[in-house]
Design a protein around this nucleic acid. Structure first.
Lengths: 119, 119
DNA sequence: AGGCGTTATGTTTGCAGGAATACAACGCTA
DNA sequence: TAGCGTTGTATTCCTGCAAACATAACGCCT
């Protein structure tokens, strides 16, 4: 394969992985990162800010995940201490762990194939 | 994982794989299909038509691949018998084989992980 | 010589999807 | 009770990218 690529350019194998429902994406790398940030920051708005994404978009992603999951992955509260906030539920944490593990296996696959690519 | 998904909805694991250069994508599933159709039909325009894509877009993809490859993957001729045409070079055919094989291994990975998903 | 189907390339148009903006409701806190 | 930082939601504005359109050149073929 390497012998087919232009010698002056640096190439790299890349890919994406996601779980999709009938109408909508359910889980992907972006949603995973969003979950992580919500867990760390306790707020959808702060997580959105850190991802350089509008609050509305982040909220829509959370809503989509919650609707497609058996039980909500993120639980929210409007008003109250600090104005409210969001927490990742136990189900959300399990999702986070399992999808992160899947991602890791995918990265391993990519690394392995990248090796093969260089031959 | 299955226990986290909404029981009424059908989910499926999906993904994409591609090779990218510094500025532009080099090879992906769409470009692979385009190569296959060009080889079968002997023409960029016919291949574009069969893919439901504009000729211009197909031509740009071919141009991008040819520029990034060590040697052109598709060779074209303007004018002449049948108005001209395009053929996939030997390098193009090797690319086609190798990337198709990579795709197949990726599909196997997806299938395996889909199994694991259902647990 | 003229027609045809193709490659090759520039220009304009349309549109989907995200960003930006706006605003109501909520419930601690001071 | 007023303020603050959230969630929740509607609406308008942008813009990047693909589609659509247009046109030239090319070289067989009749």
């Amino acid at each position: 394969m390497k012998n087919l690529l232009h010698p002056d350019l640096a190439f790299r194998l890349n890919g994406r992985l996601w779980i999709e429902g009938p109408d909508d994406r359910f889980m992907g790398i972006g949603r995973l990162e969003l979950l992580e940030k919500i867990q760390r920051l306790g707020s959808i708005s702060k997580a959105a800010q850190e991802m350089g994404m509008s609050y509305k978009r982040a909220w829509e992603l959370v809503s989509s995940m919650n609707q497609q999951a058996r039980e909500p992955l993120v639980s929210t509260q409007t008003g109250g201490k600090r104005g409210g906030g969001a927490v990742v539920t136990a189900a959300g944490q399990q999702m986070l762990r399992e999808f992160a593990a899947l991602q890791a296996r995918f990265q391993a696959f990519l690394a392995e194939e990248t090796q093969r690519l260089a031959e």
